[in-house]
Design a protein around this nucleic acid. Structure first.
Lengths: 210, 210
DNA sequence: GTCTATATTATGATAGAC
DNA sequence: GTCTATCATAATATAGAC
């Protein structure tokens, strides 16, 4: 009946770029300062956009925070799924060792992921409940599977998988959580490839019971 | 010459109580929300005092943050020094195992310590530089000594002591950093005595190379 | 879709009464 | 030492021009 509706493709593409820039800026700000400490104006300044377009594209600050959470969880899921596909056919022990390794490497590449999650956990409240119900809970089911497989292959010692998962995350993220302190105390850059490589080996060896 | 100056003892005591209440409230708020996210009005509300007396007793918000840092570092130093004195005469290996244990127990008793430090590290900037120069750096010299002694006694594996210290802290604080998540995901209270006891044993065994 | 202008509230800090 | 009142600024959010 009607002709196809107009498709403002260039505008949509432009809008997508703007939204991505805002989401990355929001991730950095929410990670560094938490929900209350971050400001929509500060986020807009980092993304180099007018602060009112945040409301236009995302709605409220609360909505932006949720969109940011979904954005970074998407980055994480893509990374792990891509790695899983690359490792098709690899034996179970090697596979799960490499999946644990990939988590550490992702944390090194996108430290804002761990920062964002730490802020959400420490703040608690309804936002954390939403995050657990929407992303952490569903995502942790896959991760618990990896933990249990790793335990079967003696890559991790026995114990409640939920507990072991948090213990592993704590050790894996340590030098990134404390990167600024490590830099000031020891002059070391936690994100340099040699520090990251040594850290990966150290953490995997630490938990390895084989 | 002059008579002793007037000593308004009761007023001073009252003021001390007020200041302590404010410092504990500030520790909770700065730990949960970071410097920018916490508000002097919110802190005053928790301490149940008028918000203007914060300015009177502590000066600016920045000064309150520094006083809070000094307060919680004092709590930590007192705790470790008291434990050290109690352990006078104990053999080196047992001593250092118990000192590592005491750090974990302090983190469980005063989780705001770890939260406050995490916020400061993630935020970076001049405040973190002050914190490292004033408290973390001087304090870490003692801790590095404990780490090295623990390494000598095979309580910790070999490696750069500064790095091993952060790795140990990451593992030791994990279930407290993620306490709210652990509660929502697994229904477990990270601060219950049985969870804490199991965690202490798990972490010390994890690092133990003896 | 992006901008300027603005309403409303929250926040850090100060002045001054008691 | 503690309170009420107030100022100046910053923040979230919205309205409306282009």
């Amino acid at each position: 009946m009607n002709a196809q509706k107009p498709k403002p493709r260039k505008e949509q593409q432009r809008a997508t770029e703007t939204k991505t820039a805002v989401l990355n800026a929001a991730l950095a700000e929410f990670g560094a300062k938490g929900f209350d400490g971050a400001t929509t104006r500060g986020i807009a300044a980092i993304a180099d956009v007018n602060h009112t377009i945040i409301t236009h594209h995302f709605g409220s600050k609360e909505d932006l925070w949720k969109a940011t959470a979904s954005h970074v969880f998407g980055l994480y899921a893509d990374r792990i799924n891509r790695r899983r596909n690359d490792l098709d056919g690899v034996d179970a022990k090697t596979l799960h060792r490499l999946l644990l390794r990939e988590f550490i490497l992702f944390t090194a590449d996108v430290p804002e992921f761990n920062q964002f999650m730490t802020q959400a956990s420490q703040a608690g409240g309804e936002r954390l409940e939403w995050l657990v119900a929407t992303h952490i809970g569903p995502g942790s089911e896959n991760e618990i599977g990896v933990i249990e497989e790793a335990q079967s292959n003696e890559l991790l010692g026995p114990g409640d998988p939920q507990y072991m998962r948090l213990l592993f995350i704590g050790a894996a993220t340590s030098i990134f959580t404390w990167a600024n302190v490590y830099k000031l105390l020891a002059g070391e850059n936690s994100f340099s490839s040699d520090v990251v490589d040594r850290h990966v080996d150290m953490v995997l060896d630490l938990f390895d019971r084989g």
